[in-house]
Amino acid sequence: MELIVALGLIVFKVALLIAILLLLPLPLTWLERKIAGHMQQRMGPMRVGWHGLLQPVADGIKLLTKEDHIPADADRFLFKLAPILALAPPFVVFVAIPFGESVSVLGNEITLYVSDMNVALLFVFAVIGIEVYGVIFGGWAANSKYSLLGSLRTCAQMISYEIPMGFAVIGVVILAQSMSLLDIVRAQADVWNIVYQPVGFFVFFVAGLAEAQRIPFDLAEAEGDLGAGFHTEYSGIRFAFFMVSEYVIMVLVSVLTVILFFGGWNGVLIPLPPVLWFLLKVAFFVYLFMWFRFTFPRYRYDQLMAIGWKVLLPLSLANIIITGIAFS
């Protein structure tokens, strides 16, 4: 009996998580277009619903009813596989993400995470690495020059930025003496990691921008020079998969930044519910992502490589050494 309840609870949590993550891109696209509009002194979407609030729904219906076109010489199997490969990993990663300590509902303690892995951090980086395959396959299978160039860039970018990103969190692991995200947050109860790990945060955040393929590192889909990059040939629902994946990764990088460097659900000064603190911090970083997007130009390809290998990698290594010496 207890086993069934526990199992049911997990199924419920997973279903809830998937539903939230699938619906999250709707408000986020609206927000992104509004922010873009106002930064450019426009209004953004205004016509569907109050201040264009229903615009994402209209866009979703449009995407669902569009023709799902596959180019004539495409590799049909990989072409169909790629959007799923891009979509699934960001969802899987959220299994390991804690959103807070437990809350009590009807006298039962319910934890605000699906599972507390002792190697959660490793799990996150391993699974998020798979997402690249979606982009690479998509670009390769479409049999188009734009797509291929986009996915070539992605390959190089991911390899260059996953390394400093992985190194940057080692400092956090040294401080918390654990790879469990829950323990990492608990270790920041008094002082947030950003105080001890400013360099680590910097490297992680820049690499996270690259990982999420956002401006200034969105070379994979640089619409100025590559059409739409790796998803040039995608239309309809498969294109929507890539879009959802992109937004979920953006949220994921924000969530990771908050958990690793900004104290997770630990608040300061103002006593708010922990979950609210967590959401506020994540919202700030999501806003930061969008703010960056409409402020900065895109880096050139060689600059991207130079930043990855000549700046971020040495910085992250130095960060590990200094943290190791200072806290051993």
Binding site: I35, G37, H38, M39, Q40, Q41, R42, M43, W291, F294, T295
Partner: peptide, 9 residues
């Protein structure tokens, strides 16, 4: 850009 965001469209 932040300043522009709160200026009148």
């Amino acid at each position: 850009t932040f300043g522009y965001m709160f200026s009148r469209p």
